[in-house]
Design a protein around this nucleic acid. Structure first.
Lengths: 266, 266
DNA sequence: CGATTGGTTGAAGCCCATCAAGTCGGGTGG
DNA sequence: CCACCCGACTTGATGGGCTTCAACCAATCG
């Protein structure tokens, strides 16, 4: 079982280096940066939000020798549930979904991870979920063994990682209320508001929310069917709360009202 | 807001010491142990499962000077959401529920915590949920400030706490699948199997599962109504899977079948 | 231009929530 | 000791909302 997973990951690793070698895609401009000698960590677009943000130059140099970036194409997996946990990952660009499956194929997406967020939580040495790229995505990987050493030596990193983990717990709780107690319209509203908030645009009345993922991922994230997601969005569109210029973009027309809906008020 | 919460917590602290002084209840035999000079941590019934389990005697003595135990009576709260997070708690005896509320009163219980488990996760310095005693419960509290110092000095504690936190994340993910994708019967089956497992009795065919909480808490934990919980349990009873000798006890008659149900097989 | 993929819309049915009544048990007081 | 009460749980009847199944539509691609 685990051996086959190991085999799978090494084959993934191969396909990755092929991907890096073959194309210089303009959608993933940093894909070709395979190690740090070509482009220092300090220029990383996710640096400011990552757990290495507050480190000293000297510490960054030390870390830079041990990390690698990796391009993960749409639909490809970074790791799978029950696979041996060897790395902690940070999203550089793109988006990753964490998902768990039931035996009959039902799926629950537990989290979407964007630039600067970490993934790779383990349970007894094995990953807890499948991690798959929602769109072409670049992740930065650091071996767990090395990370543990650094955490001892670099308090700023320990602090930052602890904050990320506590934030993860908070999001999972937040999501539990959504899954267990909210109606479809409240779920969609919460999803959109949370995403707008993540992009820092919650203050304005009108915000465009980009959706890298498809309706299927949204449905599995919110515990709904794809049809209910679709119907609910059109209902909100008809109410004048949203505009939907394309499948991957939604414009919030009335943020205040959407926030009310998200919290179940009226 | 926060001041009133502080007032409330200090009044709780008072009622606690009264409770300690007045009765030597047999249901909470350790309630009278207010600090460590009266009974050393090493004799604590939760010690083996707690984050202090692997510490040296000398380290235990150090910690013992800074912790306090506290009796929390049924229905009383240990802390509330948005209250300033000053302590990390460990359950000694009894059971705590973590819950979050929507504005209109809908409630989601995100976790039940039993002996040895920790609670007190914060987000930006404030607790993330309400923590309330499901039955008379004793918790051990350590100030966050002091804990942070110890974590630096005592690697065994850091390791143990990290394991608890990762386990918490795992449980929340596990619970997300349940809330988002499982049917009522699968939810109840999962709930019972998980509880049996926690008590270490999953191997035997027939196990008695004690339920300290009421149907209401179970419903809010599983994202159901109390009626559906009740109906589902009687359905399983009629199928010969369970016996229900009292409201606070369920005997699993066919563990294997229940596990199948829990995973959605057939 | 057909084929495929992803999304929307429609119709029907079932499951769960809701509302309401009934039952059980534990505790209190007369 | 029993009558009573109260809270917790169970059971019943009903309706609505979500899922399911199915057809349709739009965009993308070979």
């Amino acid at each position: 079982m685990l051996e086959s997973l190991d085999a799978r990951i090494s084959s993934l690793a191969k396909s990755k280096s092929q991907a890096n070698g073959h194309k210089q895609s303009e959608t993933t401009p940093k894909a070709e940066r395979k190690n740090i000698s070509e482009a220092p960590c300090s220029t990383c677009s996710a640096h400011a939000q990552a757990i290495c943000a507050d480190l000293k130059d000297q510490e960054m140099d030390e870390i830079a020798r041990n990390i690698r970036t990796r391009l993960v194409q749409t639909g490809q997996s970074v790791y799978r549930e029950y696979e041996e946990a060897k790395y902690l990952y940070t999203v550089v660009t793109g988006e990753i979904r964490l998902a768990n499956l039931l035996d009959d194929g039902r799926r629950q997406v537990t989290s979407f991870k964007t630039a600067g967020e970490v993934l790779g939580e383990q349970k007894n040495g094995y990953y807890q979920s499948d991690a798959e790229a929602v769109c072409d995505t670049v992740v930065c990987q650091i071996p767990i063994k090395i990370l543990e050493k650094y955490l001892q030596e670099m308090p700023a990193m320990q602090t930052a990682l602890t904050a990320k983990v506590l934030s993860e717990i908070h999001e999972l709780r937040h999501h539990a209320i959504l899954l267990g107690r909210k109606t479809p319209i409240e779920k969609i509203a919460t999803f959109l508001v949370d995403r707008a908030e993540k992009l820092g645009g919650k203050d304005s009345v009108e915000v465009e929310v980009m959706l890298t993922m498809g309706r299927n991922d949204i449905a599995d994230f919110l515990g709904l069917t794809i049809e209910t997601v679709s119907r609910t969005i059109t209902k909100m569109k008809n109410l004048g709360l949203l505009e939907v210029p394309s499948n991957h973009s939604i414009i919030i027309k009335d943020m205040a009202e959407l926030e009310n809906l998200a919290e179940g008020e009226k």
